[in-house]
Design a protein around this nucleic acid. Structure first.
Length: 120
DNA sequence: AGGGTGACGATCA
DNA sequence: ATGATCGCCACCC
């Protein structure tokens, strides 16, 4: 074994395409009338801390229910017209707001045990 | 190689 | 609640 490279521990070494497909799957699993956050999706996809990548994927992959993904606390992060459209689409799915943010108490989709004791 | 960017997120003033 | 800062990650000059 010559020059064996060590991978930084703790970091996912899977290719971005793997993670990307997982993120896509997670996003597509969001039921109508529910929402999730960039960060939560990253965690659910096994990619904690990669909220920004979730955004990138969201923009790059067509056909995803992008409007069901909001910022932490239910904030609409999309600027301008796009943000208005997102809110409109959500309200169309009976998602309610509390001021400028989604009422997460009622609509946030909880993925299977993001944290919590054993068993996922 | 080096630096800038973003639909982020948590923390602090 | 608002704005600044810092940490994070992949992508694009």
């Amino acid at each position: 074994m010559s020059t064996k490279k060590k991978e930084p521990a703790g970091r996912r070494n899977k290719t971005s395409s793997d993670l990307r497909s997982q993120v896509v799957t997670v996003i597509r699993s969001l039921p109508k009338g529910t929402v999730s956050t960039y960060g939560a999706i990253a965690v659910a996809a096994g990619w904690p801390g990669a909220a920004r990548q979730v955004v990138r994927i969201l923009r790059q992959v067509p056909g995803l229910p992008w409007w069901r993904v909001v910022g932490a606390g239910g904030a609409i992060k999309l600027p301008g017209e796009s943000g208005a459209e997102q809110r409109f689409r959500l309200q169309m799915e009976s998602v309610t707001f509390r001021g400028v943010r989604v009422d997460m108490k009622k609509h946030e989709f909880l993925f299977r045990r993001l944290k919590s004791p054993k068993r996922w």
